[in-house]
Design a protein around this nucleic acid. Sequence first.
RNA 1: GGCCCGUUCGUCUAACGGUCAGGAUAUGAGAAUUUCAACCUCAUGAUACGGGUUCGAUUCCCGUACGGGUCACCA
Length: 374
Amino acid sequence: MIRFLVPRETDEKIVIDDAVRGRVEFDPSQMPDPVIMRGDETPLYNFACVIDDAEMQISHVIRAEEHLSNTPIQAMLYDAFGYDRPVFAHIPYVAAPGTKEKLSKRKLEKYRKSPQFKKLFEAADFIFPLLGLENKGGLDPVMVEYYEKIGYLPEAVLNALSRLGWSLDDQTENMSLDTIVENFSLKRVVKSPAGFDPDKLLSFQAHWMGEVPLEQKRKTCLAYLEQAGLSDSKIENEQLDLIINAIGDRLVLFSDILKFQEFFVEDDKLEYEQKAFKKRILKPENAVELLGKLAEYLQNSSAQTPEGFDLVVHDFVEKQEIQIGQIIHALRVAVTGKAAGVGMFDAMAILGKESCIARIHRAIQQSKQTGTVN
RNA sequence: GGCCCGUUCGUCUAACGGUCAGGAUAUGAGAAUUUCAACCUCAUGAUACGGGUUCGAUUCCCGUACGGGUCACCA
């Protein structure tokens, strides 16, 4: 075993001129002689990395703050071997949401209860089982892989990370890799650790998703649908493009496509949200009756496009002398199973007349079975 | 505990010692709408505390408090 003899004869401090933190001093008299080689003559980290970096003529050693306390040892070794010291820069580590604590895999259980992390865990609990990726402790929000698997864009993750402990100026938030490479500077790195903010990541994701071309959205969404077993009937590209366009900004994560199962299930497999079904179909007195009439009306129409369905439904509303609001909510629930979603007429055009009618009839059937309102 | 580091809206951050302390995100309200979201408008919201230095401190110095990192024949 070999130790490095720390020079302590003088009271000279070891001074590190850190590119981020400025002048940092250490007192050699307080430091033990560090072991640099084991009994079996293999070198230890502090020794090996100095030799490696010096031989490779590394100019900048940029690493996280937790290495700051290794720096005086390494600096002494550089000096002792007659190497020029590199520029040291100690940047802040990524902290857990809302804290200054280092983000750590070991604290996963604690994070599960944290309000900031909650949404991410919930998303995982919903999405991963659908994809056949049960969360066996191998996929969680502390790993980058989680973000990939759940459908975040690399651009979003990069952008979010780049803004942790660094800024370009007092305005710019959305930055591509090129922009970051072009503008990054150690001078603008912040000294204190920054808590990772899932909300802000999502906001970056929404921004960069807006830049993704339709074709890429289609390809990626299709992969999710296939993995979830929702594309048995082989969806045509044109059909999927229509759906994705209709979903529009509501598709923030690629996995969000799985929240629009109404477009990928058979008419008789559609699930109705109970609450919406009660509120929009069972509760209003004449909803069922109107739906029946509307189905008939649709049957006699030749609507195919969103505009076509728009006309037919408005025409129907006029003939019945009601407001659009008196039928459209029931219609939405009957056709999509949900209280909220894509534009009603877009949805109808995507599903087609026959499906819409079949679903309306099925909803009417269900309403009779369910009985009275609570 | 020793050594080292940090502290501006809830969060991420901006501000040659002179700004109504700026932006983003989140939150709230409004507008619009067939729903939800997005978009748009407005609003709420911060210099940890105490001393200096200075004509003037978010900014410089000291102290306190709080937070954090690190203390291996790991990397």
